[in-house]
Design a protein around this nucleic acid. Structure first.
Length: 910
RNA sequence: GCCCGGAUGGCGGAAUUGGUAGACGCGCUGGACUCAAAAUCCAGUGUCCCUUAAAGACGUGCGGGUUCGAUUCCCGCUCUGGGCACCA
């Protein structure tokens, strides 16, 4: 009886769906384990073979944990709001809802074929009103909260209002608060709310007709669509993510994430410890103190000028009448540039003198104040002290405009370039002279604080997230404007449904919702922008815990049971977007007591990308002749991508090639050894390179179990690697061999006779290895171990149930269909899912203090640490003892005895 | 420019973290079964020297070092993948 994967896989996928085998319910008697994949955005192209990589890895882990006795939550859904569906709608007029539904159906059918153990009853799409109700709900909570720096957490805004009324807070006195109009009060509160509306410099993308968050922009272009992005001042909804910068950074330490990903987040958050210092300034006769931020307070004796950002509010106040014209011209010039041009021209130094001067608080010296785009308005105070000798940007500026350069470090040569390193001994620096740089920084900070010239300050690079998009396909804001005051809708009226509209295009910067009919609440106009893509994905993991609850995002009971995600699998591309926003969102809900864990994702594994492996043919220029790879250097050729489906093991199927396209009908070939060998390259998997591999095709010709096994066998999960169908026969062969342990041509072979020691040893080696490797995500080596075990057992002609039954359980996480089928044929009526992972018994301790470790290269090594003081005779005795032991265990072939006098003894046996 | 990773046969990748480098798979070569093919099975497969074998020498990007012993640890390079990039 042959291994008929087609009928087996169909049968079990149907049964799992009907029986709801993977439906999960809270069960306090079992420990929980939450395994989550980053849910997909259902695009029109469907899944290629790279997409399921992470899902397979997490599914293996989920199934393994179930066998280990955990109650596993393993859900899947769709991140369905967002730009691509809407862009498609603009082009075709088709409603994004329709495209999304179609794409989701396609994804679902593709996913179902791979045999995942998802609990589909918990599935949802972020564009479902039942779900986005809770996105809106969370937004209102953020609107109604402020960040209390004393308690270092978010608190209800009413507590802040109470402070204003009683004692006052910041610069608001109780009297001022009481006198303020409703509008004025609203404006004041906006300065504190976690979700607030404020004017800020934003990434405006004309091509998409919307603003974008920092992580949605790369190299001055939009990540989606690649349109140019410019800086524009606009009033937008924002989330006060920056308030959480310190906590987001600090609690990274507690997470089991890869170092590289943590590092990326650290860079993105960008903590920098420095000093805020006040400089008095003179503009004509007017004195105005301004504050700057520096991490190099030690260099204050080398300040030779100051610089303001062009967007800084101080520019107007500090420009003298004589310079007004020049400054205005410069600012106009700067504003004209797009973000991309600004990045491209970073090497070009530009600037203009403001006409006023700053006064160095330590030396009393007068230095000119310049305006330049190399200083950013959004970071620090938008004003700096410039120390050209020790900062390369200041140096370039000073050189260009002929400003003085004073070296402050002994031996530093600043004739050609600045000396930026934080090392050396201070000179020309008053009381800091003679100290090394690190001491000097601290001493300068102390001095500044002691003399009331400023204070220590930690700055972060992380900006508040811009939360509104002038687009249609997103969550509407549950906000209406009553007399111009932003007011949240009451919770009981949520969700605020996305209205139907005629055309999805935004016109003259006016969002599509502005054209929706009756877009009002209680007669007041509703907000017309929608929320960005990351809104829906920020708390979806919480919703899976309790997806049908219409009273809360997640009930306290469900939250308390599932707590947070134990294992999260997804790509690195979300390092500075989703993974920051989710952590922020979770911390916010945690502050207000809605969830019991401070961090959403305890362990994170980043799966690598699967690249395509493209094939090429070489056309001789000016002919319809194609030359094989090995001979192509003898001709002048052009390289042409060829469909990988008509190439097998880099050998071109000539007839298929002729039939591929009309222009190749009469193609001629120059062969080597009678074959046409194609060239190849690793590239992104894409239609245009004819290298896309569809998982459906693999399932058709090899089966889902082979696909699962093969994707894992390709290499470590975290690593990016090209898809190469060549090796797939190997794992398919393995499954057929596995099957043949149970069946020969006609008979079921399994008997109840007890296993031999050799058979047991083969099994237990595998158990030990699998246990160890799955925990560390080394699935490729587990599969190797499987192949070894199956080869051994097949050589031993093992047919003992005592061995074969646990073997099926061990295979189940990797190849669930075949495991389930064999499990049933072994006479079980329940799913293999509820079986127990076999207990590992291979570790034996034998006499003479020699341990017997099971090792893997077909070799076993006995090892004993000998004390340094051991005499040659003692070493000799130990060697004897170990040889004895080796024989006792039943190993005959001693390959080598390694004796290092006084240290270690090894006996290697085959 | 700054910050993380990598580099091992023809290929994908192992190596119990300092102890026979190249597990496992692919590919390739030869053989068995077969009228034949597929499938399956067996043997071989790092390089060099050699008719073959034994035996040897050389081998984990390059150059040094520590060690009885280094793919693994340290120092200095080269190449490569990724992230950040006027953040004061």
């Amino acid at each position: 009886m042959d291994y008929d994967f087609r009928s087996i896989e169909k049968k079990w996928q149907k049964r799992w769906a009907e029986d709801k085998t993977y439906k999960t319910v809270e069960d306090p008697s079992k420990p929980k384990f939450y395994v989550l994949d980053m849910f997909p955005y259902p695009s029109g192209a469907g899944l290629h073979v790279g997409h399921p990589l992470g899902y397979i890895a997490s599914d293996i882990y989920a199934r393994y944990k179930r066998l280990k006795g955990f109650n596993v939550l393993h859900p899947m859904g769709y991140d369905a709001f967002g730009l691509p569906a809407e862009q498609y709608a603009i082009q075709t007029g088709q409603h994004p809802e329709k495209t999304t539904t179609d794409n989701v159906a396609r994804y679902r059918s593709q996913l179902d074929r791979i045999g995942f153990s998802f609990d589909w009853d918990r599935s949802f799409r972020t564009c479902d009103p039942d779900y986005y109700k809770w996105t809106q709900w969370a937004f209102i909570r953020m609107f109604k909260s402020w960040y209390d720096p004393e308690m270092d957490k978010a608190r209800p805004i009413n507590e802040l209002i109470a402070k204003f009324e009683s004692t006052g807070y910041d610069d608001i006195t109780p009297e001022a608060w009481k006198k303020a109009s409703a509008k004025k009060k609203s404006d004041i509160l906006m300065r504190y709310r976690i979700a607030y509306q404020g004017e800020t410099s934003v990434n405006w993308c004309e091509g998409l007709g919307t603003v974008l968050a920092n992580d949605e922009v790369k190299d001055g272009l939009s990540v989606r669509g690649g349109f140019p992005v410019e800086q524009k001042k606009m009033t937008q909804w924002q989330l006060r993510v920056s308030a959480y910068a310190g906590r987001l950074l600090d609690s990274l330490e507690t997470l089991d994430w890869s170092d590289s990903l943590k590092e990326m987040q650290r860079n993105w958050i960008g903590r920098s410890e420095g000093t805020e210092m006040v400089f008095d300034t003179v503009c004509g006769d007017i004195h105005k103190p301004i504050t700057i931020f520096t991490t190099r307070a030690d260099t204050v004796f080398g300040v030779t000028f100051m610089v303001l950002a062009p967007e800084s509010e101080l520019v107007d106040e500090l420009t003298t009448p004589e310079q007004k014209e020049a400054v205005a011209a410069y600012i106009k010039e700067v504003k004209k540039k797009t973000e991309r041009e600004r990045i491209a021209e970073t090497k070009t130094v530009t600037g203009v003198f403001s006409g006023s001067y700053g006064i160095n608080p330590l030396t009393g010296e007068k230095v000119p104040i310049w305006i330049s785009e190399y200083v950013l308005a959004g970071y620090g105070t938008g004003a700096i002290m410039a120390v050209p000798a020790h900062d390369s940007r200041d140096y370039a500026f000073a050189k260009k405009f002929g400003l003085p350069i004073i070296p402050l470090i002994e031996g530093a040569d600043v004739s050609e370039q600045s000396f930026d390193a934080k090392e050396g001994v201070m000179i020309n620096s008053g009381f800091l002279n003679g100290m090394n740089v690190k001491e000097a920084i601290e001493a300068a900070k102390d001095y500044v604080e002691a003399h009331g010239l400023g204070r220590r300050k930690t700055n972060y690079r992380l900006r508040d997230a811009i939360f509104s998009r002038q687009r249609y396909w997103g969550e509407p804001f549950p906000i209406y404007y009553k007399d111009g005051i932003a007011t949240p809708m009451p919770d009981e009226d949520l969700p605020l449904l996305l209205p139907e509209i005629e055309s999805y295009k935004s016109k003259n910067g006016e969002p599509p919702l502005a054209r929706a009919k009756d877009w009002t609440y209680g007669g007041h106009p509703l907000e017309t922008s929608t929320m960005p893509g990351f809104a829906g994905s920020s708390a979806y993991y919480l919703r899976y815990m309790d997806p049908h609850n219409d009273k809360a995002l997640v009930s306290a009971e469900a939250d308390k049971y599932w707590r947070n995600v134990d294992l999260y699998v997804g790509g690195t591309e979300h390092a500075t977007g989703h993974l920051i926003y989710s952590r922020f969102w979770n911390k916010f809900l945690y502050d207000l007591g809605y969830v019991c864990e401070d961090e959403p994702f305890r362990k994170l594994v980043n799966q690598g990308m699967i690249q395509g492996r493209s094939n090429f043919v070489y056309r001789v220029v000016g002919t319809n002749k194609f030359v094989s790879l090995g001979l192509k250097d003898q001709y002048e050729t052009t390289e042409i991508h060829v469909d990988i489906n008509i190439v097998h093991n880099d050998k071109l199927d000539l007839e298929a090639f002729k039939a591929w396209r009309p222009e190749y009908n009469d193609a001629e070939f120059i062969l080597e050894n009678g074959e046409y060998i194609c060239g190849w390259a690793v590239e992104k998997m894409s239609k245009s390179m004819y290298n896309v591999v569809n998982p459906d095709d693999i399932c058709d010709s090899y089966g889902a179990d082979t696909l699962r096994l093969y994707e894992m066998f390709l290499g470590p999960v975290e690593q990016s690697k090209p898809w190469d169908t060549k090796g797939i026969d190997g794992v398919n062969r393995f499954l057929r061999k596995f099957w043949r342990l149970f069946y020969d041509r006609d008979n079921f072979l399994v008997t109840d006779k007890p296993a031999t020691p050799a058979e047991l040893k083969a099994l237990h080696k595998l158990i030990g290895k699998e246990q160890e490797d799955i925990e560390s995500f080394s699935y490729n080596t587990t599969i190797s171990a499987f192949m070894i075990a199956v080869n051994e057992l097949s050589d031993l002609k093992c047919n003992s149930r005592e061995v074969l039954e646990p073997l099926v359980v061990l295979l189940c996480p990797f190849a669930p269909h075949i495991a389930e089928e064999l499990w049933e044929r072994l006479g079980h009526t329940t799913s293999v899912t509820v079986a127990a992972f076999p207990e590992y018994k291979a570790e034996l301790t034998v006499e003479n203090n020699v341990t017997y470790p099971v090792s893997f290269n077909g070799k076993t090594r006995f090892m004993v640490d000998m004390p340094k003081s051991a005499s040659p005779a003692e070493v000799e005795a130990q060697v004897r003892a170990m040889e004895q032991t080796a024989k006792w265990v039943g190993e005959q072939n001693i390959v080598k005895v390694i004796v290092v006098p006084g240290r270690i003894v090894n006996i290697v046996v085959k």
